[in-house]
């Protein structure tokens, strides 16, 4: 009897392992930080792009919704999402905070002059240090937060038409 139990449990264990492998095979396993939604961003201290002001959490609490967008003039996909950002700027409930990432000041200004400036506020992250605070690992990346600074959604890569509609729906509610 005891032996039978041992044998049976060994067989069940093997079935379990193979089953997990089988499910694992069909699971898409590309890493992203999208599941970190719901976190509260506590420490915000961003240098303003043009003056010596520091943008803090308090500034963002004033907005109903804020879209924090990390971009740089040297980043190709940032150009692709730029028209959508310009359109998002028209939303009343949404403020856009751009964070210029590891960029040269002149290049960034030129970029905005050529393509338009969608940002209500612009910060600067010359060494990229602050990006870590927001869980950024490659640009462009954007984070939608609410009044309480809780992350509603993360957008990895350029913002698409679908993302635009999603944001529009949320901020208009």
């Amino acid at each position: 009897m005891q032996k039978k139990i041992i044998k049976l449990s060994i067989i069940l264990l093997i079935i379990f392992i193979i089953g997990v492998f089988f499910i694992g095979l069909n699971k898409n396993s590309i890493y992203d930080t999208k599941n970190l939604v719901g976190q509260k961003i506590t420490k915000i201290e961003l240098e303003h792009f043009s003056d010596n002001r520091i943008i803090t959490a308090g500034d963002l609490r004033k907005n109903n919704f804020t879209l924090i967008n990390f971009w740089a003039s040297w980043c190709g996909p940032c150009r692709a999402e730029h028209p959508i950002l310009l359109k998002l700027n028209e939303e009343k409930n949404l403020e856009l905070l751009g964070v210029n990432f590891k960029d040269k000041k002149n290049n960034a200004l030129e970029f905005l002059k050529d393509l338009g400036d969608p940002y209500d506020d612009l910060a600067r992250d010359e060494l990229g240090k602050h990006s870590i605070n927001f869980g950024i690992y490659g640009i462009p990346e954007s984070i939608l937060i609410n009044k309480d600074l809780v992350i509603i959604k993360k957008f990895i890569g350029p913002i698409s038409k679908n993302d635009y509609n999603y944001i529009k729906n949320i901020v208009r509610q």
């Binding site: 392992i17 997990v20 699971k27 890493y31 599941n35």
Partner: peptide, 14 residues
């Protein structure tokens, strides 16, 4: 070696 597969399948944790 196989632990990450298990956490991902069973708990959605990477």
């Amino acid at each position: 070696t196989v632990y990450p597969i298990f956490t991902e399948v069973l708990t959605d944790h990477k």
